[in-house]
Write a protein that binds this DNA or RNA. Structure first.
Lengths: 254, 254
DNA sequence: ATGTCATATTGGTGCGTACCAATTACATCA
DNA sequence: TGATGTAATTGGTACGCACCAATATGACAT
C-alpha cells in the first residue's frame, strides 16, 4: 500500500493523500518493524542500499528508520555483515501507556472505583514536583483500578487545578488521560518514575483485596509535556501478584 | 580536559591522540551533555547552525549528537523555537550498570560474600533462556552483595560453563562482569529484565539482615551481547529499603 | 492595549555523495 | 587441507544542499 508514485514533477505533488503525510522515515520504520517481527530471530534484513531501492527512498532515510529500530532493540547491526532481526523475548520496550491502554492491550476490561476526588492545597512535595506554590490548589483523584472487576492498583493523581477547570464535575470513570488530552490539551509525552517495593498497610490491602503485609509496587510518577513541564504527579500501588515490570536495558553510550 | 586544539590544518591531523579517534558526533554529544548539565533548566542552547559553526562540524553531525541527547531526555526540542536543557529530575536514564559500578558511583565500597559457586545442569528454564540443552553444564554463582559492608542484594548468576572455563578457580570477589569482559571477551550490551515485588522468605531475609516478610525487589535478567545472544541469566533480590528504581519513560513512537 | 499579518528564525525532512572500517567470500599458496 | 591474502560487500561517518513546518518577532492597524 501507499506506493511512492514519483509522477509529476518533483516531490510534493498536489494530489497527495492526506493520511500519508507522516515523514518517510517514520512510515518506513513502521513497515520494517512489522516485517521484522514476522521474521525468525537472527535473519538478515536486506542491505541498507537494497532497502533504499526497494522503498524508493535514500539510504539516509533507511538508516534513520533502522536507527530507531536498533535503538529500541527490534534489530541489531553488525558492521561489515548486515542488519538482523533481534531475538525479541520482551519485544515491547517500556513505553508510557496508561492503565486503560495496558489493560485493553491484554484483553481485559478496565474499570475504576473513585475513592476520592477533591481540591486541596498542593503541599510541599507536590508543589515542588509540579512547580507550583505550596498553597496553590491541586485536584486530587484517588481511584481503585480494576481489570475484569479485579482490583489491580490503587492510584492517586495530582493535577494543577488551574489547568483542569471543571474536571471534578466530569465522569472520571473514563480514562483520565484521554480526558486530559481531549478536553484540556495536556499531552503527556515523558514521565519520570520511581519504583519501590513495599508491604501493604491494612487499609490499602483491604482495598486491593489481599492480606495486610502483601508485597506491592509503589510507583511515583511525574508526567511531563513535550517541553518537559510537569503536568501531573501520580502515586500508584500495584499488587505484586498481578503486576510485573519488564524493561529492556542498553549499555549507556558513555 | 581533552580540549579541541584546532591547531594544524583541518581535523585528522597526523599528531592525533589515539584516544580521540571516536566519531565526531559521539565526542560532540559528550561535550554538549556536559555543557547542558551545567545549564539551568529550560535555557536555550545555541541553534544547530551555530553549534555546527562553533564546533567546526556539519549541521547533520550536530543533529546526530542532539538526537541522542533528546532521546535520553537531556534536552528537548521545540520546532520553530530551539533546543533547550531539560529539567532533569532523574537525569540518569536507566542504563545497564553493574552493581559494582552502581555502588562506586554512589561513593560506597562494593563488597561480596560468595555463598555458592558450582557447576550444574542448566535445567529447563535456564536452558531455554540461554539457548542451551537442558543437561548442558552451567556455572552458578550465588553472592551476597554489600555496600560499605551492609547487605544490599542477594544475587545468583548462571553462565554457560563452556564459555567460562576456569571461572570457578578465579577470585570472584572482583566485579564478575569485569572478569567476563576482560578474560572471556563477553561483552554485555543489552539486557531484558523483569522486576517483581516480593516478600522475603526466612533464609533470604536472614542473609539480607532484615525481618522475614520484608518487601524486596526480585529482578530476573537475561544479559545479551551485541548480536543479541544470551550470555547470562541472573536473579537478584534487592532490599526494598535500600533500593529504588528510576526510569524515564517516553510515549512510544507509535 | 490588542489583534493581525508578513517575515525571519529555527528545527525537521529528505536527498545525494564520498569515503572509512569491519566482515565475508573466495582465490591463492604452502 | 589449511592458512593467507585480496577483493567485494556492508554498515558507519561526515558533509552539503534544498526545502518544509512550526515558532517568534515586530510592524501595523484597530
Amino acid at each position: 500500500m501507499n506506493e511512492t508514485a514519483p509522477s509529476t514533477s518533483s516531490d510534493t505533488a498536489e494530489g497527495e493523500v492526506p493520511g500519508s503525510q507522516r515523514p518517510k522515515h517514520a512510515r518506513l520504520r513502521q513497515r520494517l518493524r512489522a516485517e521484522v517481527q514476522r521474521m525468525t530471530a537472527h535473519t538478515a534484513l536486506p542491505t541498507e542500499r537494497e532497502l533504499a531501492g526497494q522503498y524508493g527512498v535514500s539510504r539516509s532515510t533507511v538508516r534513520q528508520a533502522l536507527d530507531a529500530l536498533a535503538e529500541s532493540g527490534v534489530v541489531y547491526r553488525v558492521h561489515g555483515a548486515g542488519t538482523f532481526a533481534a531475538s525479541t523475548v520482551v519485544a515491547k520496550n517500556l513505553t508510557m501507556s496508561s492503565f486503560t491502554e495496558d489493560m485493553e492491550a491484554r484483553g481485559l476490561v478496565p474499570g475504576n472505583r473513585i475513592l476520592a476526588a477533591d481540591e486541596r492545597e498542593a503541599g510541599r512535595q507536590i508543589a515542588e514536583e509540579l512547580r507550583l506554590g505550596e498553597s496553590d490548589p491541586v485536584v486530587r483523584v484517588m481511584r481503585l483500578r480494576l481489570a475484569d472487576e479485579w482490583p489491580m492498583c490503587l492510584e492517586t493523581v495530582h493535577l494543577p487545578a488551574a489547568r483542569v477547570p471543571g474536571l471534578l464535575e466530569r465522569d472520571l470513570n473514563d480514562s483520565l488521560y484521554r480526558i486530559l488530552r481531549a478536553e484540556y490539551g495536556m499531552r503527556l509525552v515523558r514521565a519520570e518514575q520511581v519504583w519501590t517495593a513495599v508491604s501493604l498497610d491494612e487499609r490499602s490491602a483491604v482495598l486491593l483485596g489481599v492480606p495486610t503485609g502483601s508485597p506491592a509496587f509503589q510507583v511515583r510518577r511525574v508526567g511531563m509535556d513535550e517541553r518537559s513541564r510537569p503536568l501531573e504527579v501520580t502515586t500508584g500501588l500495584y499488587r505484586a501478584d498481578r503486576y510485573e515490570m519488564r524493561v529492556a536495558v542498553r549499555r549507556g553510550l558513555e
